Amino acid sequence: MNQDFYWVNPPQHWHREGDALLVTTDEKTDFWNDTWYGFKRFSGHFFGADVSGDFTFQVKVKAAFSALYDQAGIMLLADQDHWLKAGVELNDGAPAIGSVLTLGQSDWAPGIFPASADQFWMRLTRKGDGLRLQYSVDGKTWPLLRLAYFPADKQCAVGVMCCTPERGGLAVRFEDFLLVPALDKDLHDLT
């Protein structure tokens, strides 16, 4: 793991185990801006590194989701009003794979997660002003989760995030961090 990673809203309990990062979420943490709920939250845990230009970031996530809105995955962060978070989130008693893109206001795009959510992979590729977001249940096949616009002029950090808006205590293990030049694959190449 790159030593240039740093915390935004560090949790009370975290440690490194080799190249893995182990986190236990604090109580009532989240990232959200206004839409539907009418509140802003910027209390979630983010561990990232500054990036510029085009890149691909990938990570393996392990967690035991058990309460509404428990979530863990990846995040691209420019500032409190410009960010993307994506991963698994417990929603209506079942794990959902989804993303929240915030360009001033947040949106939420959840979908049914097609496997056990105790282990999964996330991948984000930034190419100019485009974001290609993928996930994997086996680390081999990478379906497209989202293709989105994100301002190319925004300086950003990329890394991992976890939140528990309804509680505290979600234990998350992030491993196999990979930050490399952008994988320039065809949009329908799922490798």
Rank of each mutant, 00 (worst) to 15 (best):
160 V>E: 03
182 A>P: 00
137 V>P: 02
19 D>H: 12
41 R>C: 06
3 Q>F: 08
3 Q>I: 15
12 Q>T: 14
143 P>A: 04
41 R>K: 12
104 G>Y: 06
93 G>Q: 05
162 C>K: 00
33 N>D: 12
170 L>K: 01
106 S>H: 03
68 L>D: 10
57 F>W: 03
85 K>M: 11
148 A>P: 00
83 W>H: 02
36 W>G: 03
189 D>M: 04
114 P>T: 05
154 K>P: 00
184 D>M: 14
165 P>C: 09
15 H>S: 09
81 D>M: 13
1 M>L: 15
98 G>A: 07
171 A>Q: 13
160 V>F: 04
16 R>C: 10
73 G>M: 06
130 G>K: 11
96 A>W: 07
114 P>R: 01
34 D>M: 15
111 G>K: 12
77 L>T: 02
97 I>F: 04
22 L>P: 07
59 V>F: 01
98 G>T: 04
33 N>I: 14
151 P>L: 09
121 W>V: 03
139 G>I: 09
98 G>L: 02
173 R>T: 15
87 G>S: 09
106 S>R: 01
109 A>M: 14
87 G>L: 03
127 K>Y: 05
88 V>P: 00
60 K>Q: 12
130 G>A: 13
159 G>D: 03
172 V>Y: 01
44 G>D: 04
120 F>R: 02
85 K>L: 08
64 A>I: 09
